[in-house]
């Protein structure tokens, strides 16, 4: 029995669509979607769905050389600030550890990573935007 299925169902808006929760009081974009109070102002006035921008930059990162089975080695984990003010932790893709820098511009792309019991998991990863112009969204 796999535990992946219920989590996948609940988390589709954030996993598949990058939809955060924008605080109705202070406008902070809460991501992941935790739900009851705003992490910034503590308000429980509620949220509205917010489509997070796909462009941002690296705030900080770490290079993981020891990962669970099925994950690529090394995996670069990054904190990314998006253009519209959300902050997320994502893994990076198509990035070499020696090339990753703080403030590096990245694009959030929809990729496949990990599986549980054969069920594939999809989500967003940060891909460096190269100067040659990988610009589409």
């Amino acid at each position: 029995m796999s535990i992946a299925s219920p989590m996948l169902w609940r988390e589709i808006p954030q996993l598949y669509r990058l939809i955060g929760l924008k605080c109705k009081k202070c406008g902070y974009i809460n991501f992941p979607r935790m739900g009851s109070i705003c992490l910034k102002c503590g308000s429980s006035e509620g949220f509205e769905d917010h489509q997070i921008s796909r462009r941002g930059k690296v705030v900080t990162f770490t290079v993981e050389h020891v990962m669970p089975p099925g994950f690529e080695i090394p995996t670069i984990m990054a904190i990314v600030d998006t253009d519209d003010g959300a902050r997320l932790m994502v893994s990076m893709t198509q990035a070499k550890p020696e090339e990753v820098k703080i403030d590096m511009p990245v694009e959030l792309v929809f990729r496949r990573f990990g599986e549980a019991d054969g069920l594939l998991r999809y989500g967003f990863r940060a891909k460096p935007i190269k100067e040659s112009g990988d610009v589409k969204k």
């Binding site: 690529e72 929809f110 990729r111 496949r112 594939l120 990863r125």
Partner: peptide
């Protein structure tokens, strides 16, 4: 394709582009 790409991820990107 990269290791983390497959027909699903590629189809998703192409679809978003067509919608735009």
């Amino acid at each position: 394709p990269n290791l983390d790409e497959d027909v699903v991820t590629m189809a998703a990107e192409a679809t978003a582009s067509a919608i735009k």
